[in-house]
Write a protein that binds this DNA or RNA. Structure first.
Length: 558
RNA sequence: AGGGGUAUAGCCAAGUUGGUAAGGCACUGGAUUCUGAUUCCAGCAUUCGUAGGUUCGAGUCCUGCUACCCCUGCCA
């Protein structure tokens, strides 16, 4: 089955499943589900849940359903459903059968609500929201019974039917489970299971004006789908007794079990749908798919691959303890996946370099490997001309110690081409360097010079034959590791003003002309970049997915 | 005097009949390199929140304490 070399990923969920399989708990079946509410876009935290749910099913020859938990029509929409479906597919997972909706089960859920009433385990309560809060008590004091708690079964049946028929306004009546107002677990203090919402539902239209609550809908939906392991996040732990109470008190076809794991926290970003939506609504970002967003669609546009995200989810593990994963883990995952990407040269912030001893109008094409270690990828052709462009930061008027780039009198290799020596530096009135005049060494084509040693290798592009483009470099979205930590200040106050830096004068090598939208490349010595959908025939746009590891940057900083 | 959880290196995380601390990220060397990348080698917890106890032996068992997270929506 599995090679003994592959690092074995395990976690407490897998162990539970293995034990259940051993004991035949669910008849040897494994059925999980990913149950997003369509009220926003999926983010990296959801990816963890998706990988866990689909991954568990895959690993144990089970299946995983995709079910939209759509019990709150006021906050949900088809737009989100479409985006979520796209993201799950893009991540590379297949759900069993059709897409499901909790709303598919509204008839059954309603019937079960009636069943509870008939068992005298639910009642229609007409306390308003404020009164209900008062009656609920608080963390240390027990609540007290609603004055409506002892209505007869017949009366409850009739009132619930009136709720269904639209005879109550929102907030005027709610169906509540009759459990225990003194329970230390607040979720058991006669929770609301059906409420009036006179809203159009994206799936069921205007068929209903009452909607089941999450607590009432979720476990029963799991039972209907015969989910064996209902995996959710830690904050639902207190809901488990309620989850079980419904399953035990209703004639459901199966007995699903709920297990909780810790949600993902990533530093320098946020993983809250509500707050992400706020950034979109306030136009702090360009949209849900802004490359700076930790959303699946944002990561995708940034250049992250499904394989990298899945691998990241394996790296971080699954536990019950809250933790915050370092961004560098996500970056390590994408670097690992993109190492095999084709290479290209792009000068992001150009400065002129003129080959003094090269003839004007002459053009020489160099064959450069697409990948330094994978010759099966073949070669690309890069033109050299008299007028070149190199990276501004690859030149220093006064070279620091260990400088492996250009400086007056220094010789470097132009990657894939000749070695050049900087003989002259032209500056403008402001004292800024505007041009480097260098001589090239014709003897260094494919050969190392014998009488001197170039300081290093730099990337370059022909000024006459290269493609103008825009390069967008991204940095962390927030300046604080935990932007949500400050109780006084909004997380938006910690947005990083330098999270996007655009370079409009960049130039890529000509061979990039036909690069497809979303395809990834390594711009040598700089990082991994992908073609942004904003690209047009006239102007390509590249997003920097992640920089290369840079030991020089660390060293030179101190 | 509420209930439910969690505590292993800077970060994530293995550790499950008690037997003497996996792995990854990050970091630090050093080798190779026409990418200061990749790759490769080497290093990186006498110690498992804390104080006691049981035991020949405890991250693993017992007791006390501490810290942090979640719960008072007709949200999920």
């Amino acid at each position: 089955m599995s090679s003994n070399e592959a690092p074995q990923v395990t976690n407490f969920i897998y162990q539970i499943v293995e034990k259940d399989l051993e004991q035949g708990t669910h008849g040897g079946k494994v059925v999980t589900r990913f149950p997003p509410e369509p009220n926003g876009f999926l983010h990296i935290g959801h990816a963890k849940s998706i990988c866990l749910n689909f991954g568990t099913a895959q690993k144990y020859n089970g299946v995983c359903n995709l079910r939209f938990d759509d019990t709150n029509p006021e906050k949900e929409s088809q737009e989100y459903i479409d985006a979520i479906v796209r993201d799950v597919e893009w991540l590379g997972f297949n759900w069993a059968g059709d897409i499901r909706y909790t709303s598919d089960y509204f008839d059954q859920l309603h019937a079960w609500a009636v069943h509870l009433i008939k068992q005298d385990k639910a009642f229609v309560c007409q306390l308003n929201a404020e009164q209900m809060r008062e009656y609920r008590g608080n963390l240390t004091e027990p609540g007290k019974n609603s004055p409506y708690r002892d209505r007869s079964v017949e009366e409850n049946l009739e009132l619930f039917e009136q709720m269904r028929a639209g005879e109550f306004a929102e907030g005027e009546a709610a169906l509540r489970a009759k459990i225990d107002m003194a329970a230390p677990n607040m979720n058991l203090r006669d929770p609301v299971i059906y409420r009036v919402r006179k809203a159009h539902h994206h799936q069921t239209g205007d068929k209903w004006c009452i909607y089941p609550s999450y607590d009432f809908a979720h476990g029963q939906s799991d039972a209907i789908e015969e989910i064996t392991h209902s995996i959710c996040t830690l904050e639902f732990e207190d809901h488990r007794p309620l989850y079980d109470w419904f399953v035990d008190n209703l004639p459901v076809p199966a007995k699903p079990r709920q297990y909780e794991f810790a949600r993902l926290n990533l530093n320098y970003t946020i993983t809250s749908k509500r707050k992400l939506k706020q950034l979109v609504d306030e136009q702090q970002v360009t949209g849900w798919d802004d490359p700076r967003m930790p959303t699946i669609s944002g990561l995708r546009r940034r250049g992250y691959t499904p394989a990298a995200i899945r691998n990241f989810c394996d790296m971080i593990g699954v536990t019950r303890s809250n933790s915050t994963v370092d961004m560098s883990m996500l970056e390590a995952a994408i670097r690992e996946d993109l190492e095999s990407a084709p290479r290209a040269m792009c000068v992001i912030d150009p400065i002129k370099l003129t080959l003094t001893n090269y003839e004007e109008g002459q053009e020489e094409w160099f064959e450069v490997p697409v990948h330094p270690k994978d010759e099966t990828l073949g070669h690309r052709l890069v033109p050299l001309t008299k007028n070149l462009l190199i990276e501004r930061e690859d030149f220093a008027m006064e070279a620091p110690k260990k400088w492996k780039r250009l400086a007056p009198g220094f010789a470097v290799r132009l990657r894939g081409s000749y070695c050049v020596t900087c003989e002259d530096v032209i500056t403008n009135e402001a004292g800024e360097v505007v041009e480097l005049r260098c001589s090239y060494d014709p003897a260094t084509k494919g050969e190392n010079p014998t009488d001197y040693k170039p300081k290093g290798v730099i990337h370059w592009v022909s000024a006459d034959n290269s493609i103008p483009c825009e390069v967008r470099q991204y940095d962390r979205l927030f300046t604080e590791a935990n932007p949500e930590a400050d109780k006084e200040r909004s997380f938006t106050e910690f947005l990083n003003p330098e999270s996007l830096q655009s370079f409009p004068n960049a130039r890529v090598e000509v061979g990039m002309a036909n690069a497809a939208i979303e395809s990834s490349y390594q711009f040598e010595r700089q990082g991994y970049f992908c073609v942004d959908p904003d690209s047009t025939e006239e102007r390509m746009v590249f997003n920097r997915t992640v920089s290369l590891r840079d030991s020089w940057a660390k060293q030179s900083k101190g």
